[in-house]
Amino acid sequence: MSLDIGKDLSYLLRYDLYHSLSQIDIPPALRSEFVTLTPDEPLSTSLNTLEKLLAEGHFLLAAYLSGAILTSSLISPTDVKVVFALFYTRLVCLELSGNTVLAAQESKALEDLSSTFYYVPPSLETADAGTGGAKNDTRLSYPRHIVPWPLRVLAVRLQNIGFGDSRRGVAGLYELGMEARREIMRPGIGQEERNIWRERLGDLGIRTVNALVEMGDFDAAKRTLNSLGTNTTERGTHKMRKALLLLVIGDLVAARKVFEGSSDSSSAMFTPLLSMAEGRYTDAVGEWRALLEAETQRPDEPLIAQNLAVCLLYTGELNEVRRFAA
Rank of each mutant, 00 (worst) to 15 (best):
A220M: 08
R198Q: 14
L173W: 08
R223C: 07
G229F: 07
L201G: 06
D203C: 07
D219R: 13
S166C: 03
L201F: 13
N210A: 15
G216V: 08
M178E: 13
G205I: 01
E199D: 12
R198M: 14
T224G: 09
T208D: 03
I184L: 09
E183W: 15
F163W: 15
M178P: 01
G162A: 05
E193Y: 05
L225S: 01
R181D: 09
A220F: 00
G229T: 08
R167N: 15
N210R: 10
R186S: 01
F163E: 12
D203R: 07
M240K: 02
G236I: 03
R182E: 09
T232L: 10
S166V: 02
G202Y: 04
A211M: 10
D165H: 15
L204G: 00
G229W: 12
R198D: 07
V170T: 13
R167T: 14
Y174S: 11
A220P: 00
L225T: 03
R223Q: 12
R207G: 01
R198F: 00
P187R: 06
E192K: 09
E175W: 15
R182S: 09
S227D: 13
M178Y: 06
G162F: 02
G164S: 07
R186P: 05
L228C: 04
R198T: 12
E214R: 12
G162P: 02
T208L: 13
R223H: 03
E199C: 10
L204S: 08
L204H: 07
T237R: 11
W197T: 05
G216P: 13
K239L: 15
F163K: 08
G202R: 14
I161W: 08
I189E: 01
N231Y: 12
N231H: 08
G236M: 01
D165E: 15
I196R: 08
T233D: 07
E175F: 10
E183S: 06
S227V: 02
G188N: 09
R235K: 12
G162T: 07
